[in-house]
């Protein structure tokens, strides 16, 4: 565990807490993509089946359980508890356009052709694009609540920090995983446009809105 990875995980936890708090405090999931959250639930479920097969540390196992639990709790809030506020009309990104290519790619490009490994690989590919329905929703409505933009900033920071973690691990531990790195870089790139608008608008106290 190095500082970049710790901060990355912390940022990831923060993102999830911000998301749940936003829904709970405003009693609304308006502006949130249920489809991105479905994708994240699939990501965590397929990646963390290794909870049953390999033990890394108490921290690692607890984090996995929290991520799985919170992703389903979020789905419950969006699709059941606050369903009336869900912006389904704008949340129209077709998830199969992400699921199918990621599944095929996992079957072709993987470290080992073995069930748990393939699920891990699939989850890595899917995570890299899971935020697309959320970004698509924002591009359709042209705006995001400030708290939603904080959520996205935290989530993007998590991936950015993981890249620093991989650079560190490459030099210090001679460890690298090309599948995780390439997917992680793609994922971070998807946030760049958002980061730019976040820094130029939200940090200066303005609402997050796409340029006209």
């Amino acid at each position: 565990m190095n500082i970049f990875r710790f901060l990355g995980d912390a940022s990831h936890f923060a993102a999830i807490i911000i998301l749940v708090l936003k829904i709970w405090k405003t009693r609304s999931c308006a502006g949130l993509s249920g489809r991105s959250q479905i994708a994240f639930a699939i990501v965590f479920t397929t990646r963390y089946v290794d909870l049953l097969t390999s033990y890394v540390s108490l921290y690692n196992s607890l984090a996995k359980i929290i991520f799985i639990f919170s992703s389903y709790a979020t789905l419950y809030l969006i699709y059941f508890r606050f369903k009336a506020t869900y912006d389904g009309n704008h949340d129209t990104f077709r998830l199969e356009f992400l699921l199918v290519p990621c599944a095929l790619l996992a079957l072709i490009v993987n470290h080992r052709f073995q069930v748990v490994e393939l699920l891990w690989t699939f989850s890595i590919y899917l995570e890299s694009v899971a935020i697309l329905p959320q970004l698509f929703l924002i591009s359709k409505t042209g705006e995001a609540e400030t708290i939603t933009s904080h959520y996205l900033f935290s989530l993007g920071s998590y991936r950015g920090l993981y890249i620093l973690n991989w650079i560190y691990r490459y030099y210090v531990q001679n460890y690298y995983d090309l599948i995780a790195i390439s997917a992680g870089v793609l994922q971070t790139l998807l946030y760049c446009d958002f980061f730019y608008l976040y820094i130029t608008r939200v940090i200066k106290g303005k609402a997050f809105a796409l340029p006209a």
Binding site: R5, D50, K64, F67, R112, N165, Y176, I179
Partner: peptide
């Protein structure tokens, strides 16, 4: 080496 045997990250 591409150490992919154990996935110790989240």
């Amino acid at each position: 080496s591409d150490s992919s045997k154990e996935h110790d990250e989240l």
